[in-house]
Design a protein around this nucleic acid. Sequence first.
DNA 1: TATGAATGAGAGTTCATTCAT
DNA 2: AATGAATGAACTCTCATTCAT
Lengths: 193, 193, 193, 193
Amino acid sequence: MSTGSSHKPGRRGDTRQRIQDITLELIAEQGYEKTSLREIAERLGVTKAALYYHFKTKEDILVSLFQDLTAPIDELIEWAAEQPHTMATKQEILTRYGTAMVDAAPLFRFMQENQATVRELSIGNNVKDRATKLVDFLLPEDASLADRVRCFSALISMHAGMFMLKETEGDPEEKRRAILEVATELVTRAHEH
Amino acid sequence: MSTGSSHKPGRRGDTRQRIQDITLELIAEQGYEKTSLREIAERLGVTKAALYYHFKTKEDILVSLFQDLTAPIDELIEWAAEQPHTMATKQEILTRYGTAMVDAAPLFRFMQENQATVRELSIGNNVKDRATKLVDFLLPEDASLADRVRCFSALISMHAGMFMLKETEGDPEEKRRAILEVATELVTRAHEH
Amino acid sequence: MSTGSSHKPGRRGDTRQRIQDITLELIAEQGYEKTSLREIAERLGVTKAALYYHFKTKEDILVSLFQDLTAPIDELIEWAAEQPHTMATKQEILTRYGTAMVDAAPLFRFMQENQATVRELSIGNNVKDRATKLVDFLLPEDASLADRVRCFSALISMHAGMFMLKETEGDPEEKRRAILEVATELVTRAHEH
Amino acid sequence: MSTGSSHKPGRRGDTRQRIQDITLELIAEQGYEKTSLREIAERLGVTKAALYYHFKTKEDILVSLFQDLTAPIDELIEWAAEQPHTMATKQEILTRYGTAMVDAAPLFRFMQENQATVRELSIGNNVKDRATKLVDFLLPEDASLADRVRCFSALISMHAGMFMLKETEGDPEEKRRAILEVATELVTRAHEH
DNA sequence: TATGAATGAGAGTTCATTCAT
DNA sequence: AATGAATGAACTCTCATTCAT
């Protein structure tokens, strides 16, 4: 992605994008608090003040990342709302969700590993709302408490699996399929009364 | 047998203990970075400098909490190493693990919500090691990739479930049972080839 | 005949004027230091850089306001210099001064409330000079120290009165007359040896 | 005042006092906004952080100065409240007020020259309250609008006189007497119906 | 007649940590 | 067993100003 090499003159007018890219990279690695604006600016080869030309606050950079990168999740939710509550739909929800996560992997890794931070930030509610909605789509009509746990676990396992199985041996694509399989299994189980 | 630094309670010197208690309370609520020594000291009614009489650094407080509160997990691992690899054993591992988590709930909540921080701290490896060992105990002998995911999910779901189902309605004890049920189910599934 | 820098209104280029208006409004409310160019630009709906097309520096905006709004005071001084030193003249000086103040109320309020700032700025000397000259016009020939104080008080009271009696009840016009009355009284007293 | 010379080891435990002294000196000269904590710290030979050991914020330093230095004014108000409303009392109010101002001259100079700043700060209301109370003590019972202006002018003239007549020639003590004379005259006039 | 993009300097504030007492 | 006093480094953020377009 990006031209990859020379940084001084580089692109024209893509600074905003580059701020987002580098910020995402850094907070996924180090967390939000430990990533300073100085560090972001240094990596970009600009001044801290330049960041403030493009974003109003530090948190605003993160918010913009969320808005840009979680749009697919919102679309997924919108789509799901119009579908019949069949297992096929639920299966597709999981699949799509997996794809969205892989596409925005660093952001999801950040969310997974910095839940305390996310909770305190302005995006916290959004995140929780979406999770609740998604679980609701997966639930059977007469869900028992255990069924709720199953569907919740399905989502959680996808999140955690994506980022904590990195050090396990095996082809990533294969691992992804295995995770999806288990998640689907959990949702299916929830429907077998 | 004391761990070298001569700091066992010593009867009537419970400040050390109180530092740990308040620190745990605060980091579970706010995270590690956002909890300052000033805040801890203020809540205790002592000076920041007093903290340094009892602990070498801020991180040291956290480390001591880990050592004190995760001992049951280590014992569980030791115990498990001597048991036969039967489903009954595995079932008991999950049960005991659940109990240990509830007993040290704030610490586990902290670990769940601040994975990035934990990873960077000196305790990070410990945590990962223990998780790996526990998953290994749960695995069947001829585990497929999906089986690994199942056993991993079992543990993860227990963690996440304990702290994210707080706002779901229902009796806590009942919820705990449901979580355990699903976790057991996942491990069982892993053995049904 | 334009003053060199080509910046007379020129019909349909009222931005310069609007910058002055908004700046005056803001510094009268908040003071000079606490009014930023960003704020001025935002209120105008232009960029900060646009301000620099019309004025060389922040201070320059203030200077221009002074030059435009205190012209009547200069004219008053010129006029007074040609009048006989009678009480009637002095009475009229006070009256006219009051009118000038009301006409440029925000600027005078700013001067009253930000004396430290005005003193440090390039306009500081102007202000002091004018005050001295005006007091001199009001003084009797054989003025005692107390007489100087009386005439000085007359002017000061007009300034302070105009802006600090705002929260007192009563018709503004009436208050103005009362202030003028007291000022005149002070000058008269100074002449009663 | 103070030992005057060597600054490095100097006093023990008087840092708080020295912060107040230097801050007062600087804000009287330059104003509040233009006086930075860096400057204060440098003059003291300590770090900015040291200031924060003694005061919670920049504004807090100013507040502490107010509390310490305007106590005599509060006492004056308390005293006045118990006196009969005679001209002798009023005369003494003015005299005492003048003394209090001279004793805390730099602070009063700051207040006189930075009214906009004072107004916005937490001390603003205090200042206004006190002024109102003092004027009320000076007023005759059946005060006309002009009488209010006279008493108000009396106070204002004392303030302004003290700091703006600095460059006029003459013995300071003599000037002070002249100012008091005019102020008394104004209050007297207010009672001559 | 303006804007977009940036800078350098500096602001106030907070932090973990130290050390003599 | 603890305090008082301080430090150095870092933080987020704002400012007036510049300049190519």
